[in-house]
């Protein structure tokens, strides 16, 4: 999926994460900040990248401000941001899959 316009999903509340995706041209550039960076930084990064890969996003600037979100929350926020960024959030959301 191609990121067409900037989009955001999620909040900054505890146990959530705020994910912003913006169009990019140079692969995936991930900026991650987390309240549990020392404990889970690597896992958060892996989850975000894996979700993007599954959605077939190859070029994007991604910003994640994590407040201790579980993996499932992170995945949902990333998916939602990506769907919103390519105008797919209105109808036929292919949860868990990629938009083709």
């Amino acid at each position: 999926m191609e990121i067409l316009k900037p989009a955001m999903a999620g909040t900054l509340e505890s146990s959530d994460a705020q994910v912003t995706v913006e169009p990019g041209s140079d692969g995936i550039q991930l900026t991650l900040s987390s309240s549990v960076m020392n404990q889970y930084g690597r896992q958060i990064k892996a989850t975000v990248l894996e979700t993007l890969k599954r959605l077939e996003v190859t070029n994007a600037q991604v910003t994640v401000v994590d407040k201790g979100a579980l993996d499932c929350t992170l995945k949902a926020r990333v998916e939602c941001a990506v769907f919103r960024s390519c105008g797919q959030s209105q109808a036929n959301i292919p949860w868990g899959g990629a938009v083709r």
Binding site: P6, L12, E13
Partner: peptide, 21 residues
């Protein structure tokens, strides 16, 4: 109680809706 986070989240979401990133 993390109230500032809620307020900031709401404002950022609104700004994003208005196209201000």
């Amino acid at each position: 109680e993390g109230l500032l986070n809620q307020v900031v989240s709401h404002l950022m979401e609104r700004q994003t809706e208005r196209g201000i990133f």
